[in-house]
């Protein structure tokens, strides 16, 4: 069998099972990144603009959590969502929302830490002008987020790359259930363990294509930003 061809043939033929796997991967990772952005950007921005005792510790913790191993995040969410865990009554373990939760835990620190860095740099630049214009705190945060939007988009895309590529967390909390919680990465893990290497390689190539696409998008946005805002 010609490697890589089979998965693409399935994709081109619109194989519903494969499309469902690709679609679930995207839905889960995009939902997770959406939630992580809603949490991470305000948290990162306020961290950039406030000073309180222990702030350095918080900053270091967020930076360290950027490298949080996915399996650890998965395990934490697993223990939380298990029927025997504190949030067991929600019945979310082995469902797509559980996978979203795990990826939110993974991606939020990345978005928060990078946002803090971006907003802090921008604030250093804007501090004098905005203070001189007597801009209030709320508008200040809004202005910095808006003016940092191109960097922030790149950050969000980086978060998406992390989410879409990880397997450790979602295989633990999702269970890799066929047709329900099987994503591209968990399918690759499964097909590899079944020894069906051509299918695994094909899925891998699709995943890489998506990640490359996302990065190309990030690069284009960065370029556009430079041209527009200097």
């Amino acid at each position: 069998m010609e490697p890589t061809v089979s998965a693409f043939q399935l994709l081109l033929a619109g194989d519903p099972a494969l499309l469902a796997v690709v679609r679930l991967s995207l839905i889960v990772s995009m939902s997770a990144v959406g939630v992580a952005t809603l949490i991470g950007v305000p948290v990162g921005a306020s961290l950039a603009l406030t000073h309180f005792p222990g702030r350095t510790v918080v900053v270091v913790v967020f930076n360290a959590l950027m490298g949080l191993p996915p399996v650890v995040a998965g395990l934490a969410v697993f223990l939380l969502l298990s029927r025997s865990g504190p949030l067991g009554s929600l019945g979310l373990l082995f469902t797509p929302p559980a996978m979203v939760c795990a990826q939110v835990v993974l991606v939020t620190p990345i978005i928060a830490a990078l946002t803090r860095q971006t907003i802090e740099d921008l604030w250093e630049e804007y501090c004098d002008e905005l203070t001189a214009m007597n801009v209030g705190m709320v508008r200040r945060v809004g202005t910095l987020i808006w003016d940092g939007r191109f960097s922030l988009i790149t950050i969000v895309l980086a978060g998406f790359g992390r989410a879409a590529a990880e397997v450790g967390a979602i295989i633990i909390v999702g269970g890799n259930i066929e047709g329900f919680t099987r994503t591209m990465t968990t399918a690759i893990a499964l097909e590899t363990s079944k020894g069906d290497l051509p299918l695994a390689i094909g899925l891998g190539v699709i995943l890489i294509a998506i990640v490359v696409l996302v990065n190309a998008l990030a690069w284009t946005v960065g370029r556009a930003a430079q041209r527009y805002a200097g």
């Binding site: 630049e125 804007y126 004098d128 002008e129 203070t131 001189a132 214009m133 007597n134 202005t143 003016d147 527009y228 805002a229 200097g230």
Partner: peptide, 25 residues
């Protein structure tokens, strides 16, 4: 509060928008 005072720095920092939008801000 510097409501009715304004300053032009030697190296002014403009927001990442058009000239007109900077004034609108």
């Amino acid at each position: 509060a510097p409501v009715r005072r304004a300053i032009v720095f030697q190296h002014p920092v403009m927001l990442r928008r058009t000239a007109a939008e900077n004034l609108r801000y």
